[in-house]
Write a protein that binds this DNA or RNA. Structure first.
Lengths: 334, 334
DNA sequence: CTGACGCGGTTAAGCGATTCACTGATGCGG
DNA sequence: CCGCATCAGTGAATCGCTTAACCGCGTCAG
């Protein structure tokens, strides 16, 4: 029995077995020792309730079995889903996911990333953050960074899971066009303010090609603010016949706005989302949206991360996620 | 300039200033040194870009400025909200929140808690988990544990933020009773399976007092499964006139079920939730639910945690959160 | 027969901080 | 002018683990 409130240390196991601490250390990691002593050590360790101290281990070896996961904004419903899925996926692979939330503050992202790096996490998994900022390079060459999000950043990452935004945007706009819509408002999130914002370009291109008028309106994700913005859009002089939201939560704002103005989504105005959040199916009418395959994304991200950790130099592997339209009731013929 | 990919160490700062590492260590933490050398050290540290290595610090001092936050199940919408709020609150107080997700597996909770303890987090904040299990005692006397949830656990915690479930349940059932409902089904979550489940008792008592028939039905939180259970409830021979859900996501299942059966929530059946998730307001009809004041809960939890860390022995302080009914359109006269 | 090698282990040097115990100066009352 | 706190700073011992280097010994190819 170990003394209360005092963990058993490697040395104690060593003394118990009459071996050196080094031998015990090796033994417990199945290296370089005879089957016999390994067994002896294991038994003693179990008996004493020994578990290696991760902090000491991290200091000495520079490794942990943890993956740092950095969320740009955990308030965001989509990121919540993503984090949950990633955490689960990693846990299934016997690695702990340390989740840190930058709370929507881009400046904080880098600080937290450093914190994670200093914690000696084996890899860093970043969700919608902007790793092009100065300083990320330091992090990227200290440990593998895997990015999952919609912007292919220029930063040197070990892997990226990116959403094929062009395909998604094309699909939605073509869909709306097919339904006869010619005046579409596109609600884009303001939060992770990517500087170049390729998505905006895609919208422009698709709109031009299809011959429809697409107005881009930046909009905060927070429901109240989104609702306010949406109302302004719906009440505007040139109110669109359809609103395409770059995230489901923005779409919720449109629903709320419509309700306040006694408009009926799916009759007076069409709405399309972009995440397929579970709740979207429950709305009235159910939200037509784009499913990116959350669980595959998470699995892919986890896979990439693990691969990067295990040294298989994934040459900046990029996985492109294909969009799948989920046609439900919120978008109708114009 | 520091050599690339190699952080500056305490010793380097010491050498640069011609002081001992001890002096530098003290200086940087504003202890025991003259104003003059402190300034000198600070300048040198800044110049060399020195930042203390948290891992080494943790090993030597046993402290970090991090709070471990353990989520029972990050898939749960309510917990997602809670984690985001707590993370934000802690960050505002200049402490990092390390979030770990047990993924709904009660066995994992303890493992992760140990992991967090071994990371030397200054305190542990646990959301809906069951800290009565064997083994939690070890953790509780290694560091302060603050619990936030609805069951007042018997475990020795440094503080608890608990929801006044009795009050909430009374309020809802009285409300439904007032609307003329006499047959109510109560959907309770199966996931964090608290053994004694005081909530069930409260329901029984309130029902008895009010003279209404309340049937408890355990139900998974996951939307698909919840929908299935809800359908069974709604189609049953003795279908209730109202469904009281112990979480908003369960209520979403009822909405989905109703839609599938062409029932209209707020006309054919009344529904009441229990979280006030932001999305609930967007449903049609908007969900009548109970607001527990998420941000206050988070703030209170953070406050308690910080207090516990700073040694002010909060004698198992308990903060009770009062429920506030949000009457919206989903519950109507029977 | 000999030198190289593998095996099972040990020694000891870190990893990068914190902190206790101690040393010289200094300041000060007596 | 002396003894005694006080204060700034130093040395060295941790904290608990990893890992490179080394060592004696039996084996085996050459």
């Amino acid at each position: 029995m170990a003394r209360p409130n005092k963990r058993t240390t490697l040395r104690e196991v060593a003394e118990a077995t009459g071996l050196s601490t080094a031998a015990v250390s090796y033994a417990l990691r199945g290296k370089h020792v005879s089957k016999e002593t390994e067994e002896r050590v294991r038994r003693a360790a179990a008996e004493l309730g020994y578990e290696a101290d991760p902090i000491a281990r991290a200091l000495a070896s520079g490794r942990t079995s943890m993956v740092g996961v950095l969320a740009g904004d955990l308030q965001d419903l989509w990121q919540q889903q993503l984090m949950a899925a990633i955490g689960r996926e990693l846990l299934a692979g016997d690695r702990y996911a340390l989740i840190l939330d930058a709370g929507g503050d881009p400046d904080r992202e880098l600080v937290l990333a450093k914190q994670l790096r200093d914690q000696r996490v084996d890899a860093l998994l970043v969700s919608p953050v902007d790793p092009s900022a100065q300083g990320w390079a330091d992090i990227a060459d200290a440990l593998p960074v895997v990015a999952v999000g919609d912007s292919l950043s220029r930063a040197r990452t070990a892997g990226q899971v990116i959403f094929d935004n062009r395909a998604g945007i094309d699909a939605v706009l073509e869909y709306l066009h097919g339904l006869g819509h010619r005046r579409v408002t596109v609600l884009t999130p303001t939060r992770p303010s990517t500087p170049d914002r390729p998505a905006d370009v895609y919208v422009g291109e698709a709109a031009g090609r299809l011959g429809l008028r697409a107005e881009l309106v930046p909009c905060p994700q927070e429901l109240g603010e989104a609702t306010a913005v949406a109302r302004r859009v719906l009440q505007g002089a040139h109110a669109p016949t359809a609103v395409f939201c770059f995230s489901d939560s923005l779409a919720y704002g449109v629903y709320a706005a419509a309700a306040e103005d006694s408009l009926e989504v799916g009759r007076d105005v069409s709405v399309v989302g972009f995440d397929d959040h579970p709740v979207s199916r429950v709305l009235t009418p159910p939200l037509t949206t784009v499913d990116w395959g959350l669980s595959e994304i998470a699995a892919e991200a986890a896979r990439l991360t693990v691969a990067a950790i295990e040294g298989r130099r994934v040459r900046r592997k990029r996985v492109l996620c294909a969009p799948r339209m989920r046609e439900r009731g919120s978008a109708v013929r114009a």
